[in-house]
Nucleic acid binder design. Sequence first.
RNA 1: UAACUAAUUGCCUAA
Length: 347
Amino acid sequence: PKSLTKVLSRLSKRGDPGAAMRVFEWAERGGEELNVYHYSCVIINLGRHARAEEARTVFTRMLARGVHPNLVVYNALMSAFARDGQWARAVEAFSDMQREGLAPDRISYNTLVSALGRGGETQRAAAACAEMRTAGLTPDHVTFSALVSACEESGDWEGASALYREMGECQVVADAVTFNALISVCAKARRWEEAWEMYTEMEQLGVKPTIVTFNALLNACAQSNEWQRASDVFAMIERASLQPNTLTYNSLISCYAKGGKWDLAMDVFWEMRDADVIMDVVTFSALIKACARGKQWEQAILVFGEMRAMGVAPNARTFTSLISACERGGQGQQALEVFEEMRRMGV
RNA sequence: UAACUAAUUGCCUAA
């Protein structure tokens, strides 16, 4: 039974929801004694992929089999709803859990706060945090990070920095994820100065930045049109002994796309190729956008061709940028052809 | 910067 759990959890960590599911169903059919650990693995796995309905189905099947759900199962179910954007159903699961006589723990509250935050319900998220205190649990760095992230959608950087101050008052120590979230809020609010301030604060406190930190800073450059600073931020990555990833390069390309620097964006593309970093649909869409803004429709078409050659499937956003590139270049006929190709591809 | 622990919570990109 323990080894079956290990297999299930390993399969889900490798990001293969189908495989874990098949193993689970095979074990179920084989008359294997399935316990709460097995069910939780599957629910967690489905939840990670925002497949809330299936998670819910497994949950009911578990009840039908007479296996009693514990806190972990309820927390996982809430998380599944949260990822699927169904905060109301996460709240419902939270009440169900209480009705079953289970006392929500810190993770339950954190999951609830996160579910509400993702749903843009910042007021309710704050209320959940207050309720957590009433229940005798103290919010931790995870709670605060979730609350900070809840400020991102609205770009409420002032609310986020108020939370940061509150953390200090509560003696909760901010970690890298907290700072990354803070930087992201500033990025969203197009506040480069504040984003940079958060980074320096982080450095002063001796909190080690991660690649996400630099990705968020690069995004802050892009949003605030500070493309001149992008190469400096990028250079900091190597000094921190970190590896740039696809998101890093994509954000860097976005900096140059916003600034209309299509040639610099293309340089990033070559660098990405040399570094053997995987290029995805975002990479190419951002490049095409850079070409569009730089009035380089022919280059945009070339990039699109490269994308197809590499087997990366374009989506609606890719085509939007490509069509815009053609239109800006006064290539109405070309734009129409691109449009028709999009239709043919069923996008 | 050790290792160990059957499962659950917070961070980044192209409109």
